[in-house]
């Protein structure tokens, strides 16, 4: 597992947890967690190649469009809902956050931080919509319709009365090398949040 956000998530997942992985891609995370942490659960995905890869790995994958919600999962059906790099592509990220914390008491969310200094510089100096490793698409064909920043997401959690249990940032491929948490909104390329519906 090479992607920086996945490595950190791995450490946050409790042994034997029942997990829902939204936009699970090729099932890499669930397969690793099943092996190392003995988790069970399902991945949801709509990409045909991702789904086939999951089936080959033996990861339970359900073809489901996240914009249609999680109505087929009961309240507290899982211990943990994970969603990596998909929040920004949803029609209503705020409603999905509600859904995630209905299905489980805690969730882990990662997304590209639009306020990352390289993105700011790209826009500020070049005057073009940022294109980077974490935001690889052109403005006209990007699936990322709800870009946000580290600060934006914290604000949303505050407004919803949710507890941020932990937060971290990932920088490119520098796995295991995390910046200090002083200016995450500036130095974090990928925002990583662990959010609970329970108040402290």
């Amino acid at each position: 597992m090479k992607r920086a956000d996945l490595t950190l998530i791995h450490d946050w997942v409790p042994e034997g947890a029942r997990i829902l992985d939204l936009a699970c891609g090729d099932g890499t995370l669930l397969a690793a967690l099943a092996c190392d942490k003995h988790v069970s659960g399902y991945g949801l995905e709509i990409d045909p190649e991702g789904i086939t890869a999951c089936l080959q790995k033996g990861v339970n994958v359900i073809e489901q469009n996240l914009d249609e919600g999680l109505a087929n999962f009961e309240d507290d059906a899982c211990d943990l809902v994970i969603m990596t790099q998909a929040l920004q592509a949803l029609r209503r990220p705020d409603l999905m956050l509600d859904e995630m914390l209905r299905v489980a008491g805690e969730c882990i969310i990662t997304f590209p931080n639009f306020a990352y200094w390289r993105h700011r510089a790209y826009l500020g100096f070049k005057g073009f919509m940022p294109v980077s490793k974490s935001l690889p698409h052109a403005w006209y064909d990007t699936p990322n319709i709800h870009l946000s920043t580290f600060n934006d997401f914290e604000q949303l959690c505050r407004d919803k009365g949710l507890t941020i249990v932990d937060r971290a940032v990932g920088i490119g491929d520098h796995e295991g090398h995390w910046t200090s948490r002083w200016w995450p909104n500036l130095f974090g390329e990928i925002a990583i949040f662990r959010v609970s519906r329970h108040r402290d």
Partner: peptide, 8 residues
Amino acid sequence: DKAVSFVN
């Protein structure tokens, strides 16, 4: 709580 995959 069964292992299942679904494809349409």
